[in-house]
Amino acid sequence: MFAIFRYGRGVQRFMLLTGTALTALFVLVSLLAPLLAPYDFNQLGDADGLFGSQRPPSAEHPLGTTVTGYDVLSRTIWGTRTALEIIVMAVVVSIVLGVLLGLISGYFGGRLDQLLTGLADAMYAFPSLLLAIVVSIVISQGRSGLFAGLTSAAIAVSVVFIPQYLRVVRAEVVRIKAEPFVEAARVIGTGTVRILTRHVLRNSTRTLPLIITINASEAILTLAALGFLGFGIEPNSAAEWGYDLNKSMPDVTAGIWWTSIFPGTAIVLTVLGITLLGESLNDLADPRLRRRAAAASGGAADAAGVAAVSDPSGTAGISGGSDISGAPGVSGGSADGTRDE
């Protein structure tokens, strides 16, 4: 998949590189949090006594302290870990369930399919944040620790995401089950489970990396919003940016800028990084949106010509290389006639 970086051009190359850099930084910081952060996320003081409340940036506290007396830098760094956890939990749960339901729904069709897609459509009508609040109240009566806070956010986010995965996978499965290679497997006498896993599933996950990145940023935003609204995670069980922002609200009018700027910037940068990554993956994966380097000089008005990338399934697993003309639905008069395969 690293071939991606060779091809980028212009604005889209910038988006791709920025997105990748920011996302890599985010993951790295969250993994190395214990080494990077000067203090624990719930540490109120050290051997010299309490840190003190709302202290401006200093040598001991490069980014100052919060109203409760936590170190802002440590809270911001540890916050990446919580954000990563929510992404993993939400995305894993929704992918597993969404892909499974999508496979079943698409392959077998009929009543079950109608029921599942109907339910999925109904889910779209739900405001996700409202759902998240309700779930967090049910699980933890509002205030919660790390696990309950994460689960409520993860469940709330998953409930909204599952229909997306279901829809996307189902659409692909419906297309792929009519492909001759699936029929070829049926003629051989291959069992349904084997057909589903070996032939259908592997070919219907192309677009998932894109949805994952988009959903990842949404998961972070939901968790932050929950924290900001006061339904988040207790500060002594995990660092969470939304909670810190909530607590820093009165500080803003008092001229104490450091308590809100840093967790806020962390949210913005993380979401921005993941979104940029997702968007550029999306553009590069679509042969119609990407342009080759040389052609861009041949009269295209904008310099944002973007080069090719091997197909996104390269990120999902095995890929023998890119195969544009492998797309179904043969149409006449395309340039395919001259493309040597």
């Binding site: 290679f181 070996r198 095995i318």
Partner: peptide, 19 residues
């Protein structure tokens, strides 16, 4: 089904591209 072989029209689509 073991005794039936099937050759499809379009060889481009009758093989699983991932295998």
């Amino acid at each position: 089904s073991a005794q039936i072989g099937f050759v499809f029209q379009d060889p481009a689509t009758s093989f699983n591209p991932q295998l």
